[in-house]
Write a protein that binds this DNA or RNA. Structure first.
Lengths: 224, 224
DNA sequence: AAATCATAAAATGTATACAAAATACAGGAG
DNA sequence: CTCCTGTATTTTGTATACATTTTATGATTT
């Protein structure tokens, strides 16, 4: 529990949002560890604000599944067991399949071009050896598909699910031997969308998520 | 905006939770209408509490998608357009399909018996002509499947999606001519699970949700 | 009559104070 | 030494006060 947290003071955004973003980042980066208590007074002192915005930010973290609070006992950073991860990945698989199927019907020519360059950017990023960059490029690829699916609620859910496994995903992307497979899968998905071959893209996406599942589960097992 | 709201004072539950439940009910029952502003001071006065628990309850309503807040402008009851409803139903379809497939693998003998009686209860409820009862029995049927799927996060999501269309669902269940179809579909799903025929249950469930989609969309169109 | 601006009223944002509950801790009993 | 138990401390829950922003009002101008 280091003294790292600092607010990214954006004059106008309500403090609860600034605090929320700060805590969210800290949780995703692992600075606040799973199971760690989120004590209002302490956080308030560290961030130099009152308890009010802290409390509201915590309610918002619950919304994202990043914190769990027990009445009159306080909040802690959400823990994630292997089973939890399996559960999340099952859902992601179903929703990613849905997203790519919807995208198949609705994607525009322009969005196809954007997706193509996202595929290319991802390939390039893997050559940079910068895991953070790789992760970002991967997010961009999937976001392009989500946008094409034209279902904001679905996009929201998927972003949220992705966030819940962020920490493990970063670990996952450190394994450079996986890059060729990932690149190939991205290409396959892109080409399926280009041909608007719904069955093919659905299958490719399911495979893509399934591969992640296997690796991520291994990572969790190793950690224990 | 009637003076209806009253707190169900449960001595121990934090006020934010009591307020949350109260407002949630009011929104689902239609006492607080889509687009209506949720003003803290006013709600606080009506419910006889301070603004603090109101504010936290509003944050929690956002979590459920029942309220939307704009910084420095306040919260309002979430509106739902036909497109929103379509989006929700697409997601529901995918996740209900997932749930029933998972249930196919995991459902126990005991849970099968419970599901059977849920099917029977639903049939009986339709004879009662009490829409509220019918809705409850329908919820019980689906919950039995969700429980069998053994994925709490999935159950959570599905309950949440169901909640978001509660008002329309009740309208939907007022149409008695739909009952025979519903009963037949429930039976079909149950029998598929009994045979553990994954393809059959998935198909039956997709059909079931699709039928709802058609009817609910008609209802929305009529309202406009 | 419509538009604009100044001012007043009301609403949200934040901090703080006090109450109630949970936790930690020390001392004593067994 | 372990287990209670009661007290002190910490933490959460709630109300309230004040600051800031938004919204409403109404007079004034065109």
């Amino acid at each position: 529990m280091t003294e790292k947290l600092t607010l990214n003071m954006n004059a106008y955004l309500p403090l609860r949002d600034v605090v929320f973003n700060t805590l969210r980042e800290a949780i995703l980066k692992g600075e606040l560890k799973p199971g760690e208590r989120l004590m209002e007074l302490q956080l308030a002192a560290r961030l130099g604000v009152s308890r009010t915005p802290i409390r509201e930010a915590i309610r918002m973290l619950e919304l994202e599944g990043l914190a769990v609070t027990i009445p009159r006992k306080g909040a802690q950073v959400a823990k994630m067991t292997e089973k939890d991860m399996e559960d999340v990945l099952q859902i992601r698989q179903a929703l990613d399949e849905l997203a790519v199927k919807l995208a198949c019907d609705k994607i525009t020519e322009q969005q196809l071009r954007q997706l193509k360059s996202a595929v290319r950017d991802f390939e390039e990023s893997t050559r940079s050896r910068d895991v953070k960059k790789v992760a970002q490029a991967d997010v961009a690829f999937h976001d392009a598909i989500y946008k094409a699916a034209d279902n904001p609620k679905l996009m929201n859910l998927l972003n949220n699910l992705r966030e819940q496994m962020y920490r493990y995903r970063v670990e996952y992307l450190k394994d450079e031997t996986a890059y060729p497979t990932l690149i190939a899968e991205h290409r396959e998905i892109y080409e399926g969308l280009l041909r608007r071959d719904k069955e093919a893209v659905a299958q490719a996406m399911v495979k893509h998520v399934m591969n992640q599942e296997i690796v991520v589960k291994n990572i969790i097992r190793e950690q224990e």
